[in-house]
Simulated assay, not measured.
Amino acid sequence: MDSAEREWERASVVQMLPIVAPRKLAKVPFVELADGRVQGVVSSGSDIARVYVSSISAQNHGLSCSTNNNRPCGGLRGSYPCKHIGALIDEAVLQYGLDRVARYLRVEVPEGGHLMNSLAATHEPAPAAVVFSRFLRHLAYLELPGSSTPIPELQWFPATGVTR
């Protein structure tokens, strides 16, 4: 191990993974790989005031989709995904890349295949409150005035401009 690698290991910052492609935040403003699920918030196509919290569990590919106030999505039928889950997967692949999302969900996607077709999906309702709460917390940071002073809650985020 050379000295540059040792120095990087002692650094107090974390290396950021760049996004794969730019995202359109109007349709899927929030997507994450967390809590053993690909989960996020998807805007309603018919009501600007409604959003859906959708998720796919990594363990058994359980599909869940409900409104932000826990009303079930009418388009989710058993193991057949609704359009919200489809949009969530598409955005997760844009943000994290197909390989990383497939590894997280523990599936193999054939060359030229689609991730959704590789899942052995089941219907498994999941609580939406935690995901929606995290989304709202992220939105709150957008309302802060511009400043160069540190924000204590964001101290763990990696510093920009740090190179290896």
Rank of each mutant, 00 (worst) to 15 (best):
A140E: 15
G146C: 14
L33C: 06
A129Q: 04
Y80E: 11
G97D: 08
V53R: 02
V131H: 00
E32T: 15
H84F: 10
G40D: 00
A92P: 04
V53A: 01
N68P: 03
Y96M: 05
D35M: 04
P29N: 06
S147W: 00
L142Y: 09
Y104L: 00
S44W: 00
P152H: 01
P110A: 07
E153Q: 07
L136C: 15
Q95W: 02
E124A: 12
R23P: 08
L105I: 10
E111D: 08
C65E: 08
A21H: 14
H138S: 15
L136W: 03
R106S: 07
C65V: 13
Q95P: 09
D90M: 06
L144S: 03
I56G: 05
N70T: 12
R106Q: 08
G74H: 09
P29C: 00
L144F: 05
R77G: 01
V53S: 08
A87C: 05
P150S: 13
P152G: 01
P110I: 13
V20I: 13
D99K: 04
L136N: 15
L88E: 06
R77C: 10
P29F: 00
N117M: 11
L115A: 05
P150M: 07
S147K: 00
V42S: 04
P145T: 10
A128N: 04
H84E: 05
P127E: 12
P81H: 04
R37T: 12
S46V: 13
G74N: 08
L136V: 14
H138E: 14
V107P: 09
Y104R: 04
V130Q: 03
A140R: 15
V107H: 12
C82G: 09
A92Y: 11
G75I: 02
E32M: 05
L139Q: 15
E124S: 13
R137D: 12
T67Q: 08
V53I: 15
L63Q: 13
I89C: 00
G40S: 13
V41S: 10
L136I: 13
S46W: 02
L25A: 12
S66N: 08
S57E: 08
G97F: 09
G36H: 14
R23K: 07
H114W: 14
R100S: 03
R71Y: 12
E153L: 05
S66P: 00
K27L: 09
R137H: 01
I89G: 03
R77H: 07
V107S: 05
G36M: 06
R100I: 13
K24V: 10
A92E: 01
R77A: 10
V38S: 10
D99W: 09
L142T: 15
E91V: 15
G40F: 02
D99C: 11
L139I: 01
L115S: 10
R134A: 04
L33Q: 07
F132T: 04
L119V: 02
A58D: 01
C65P: 08
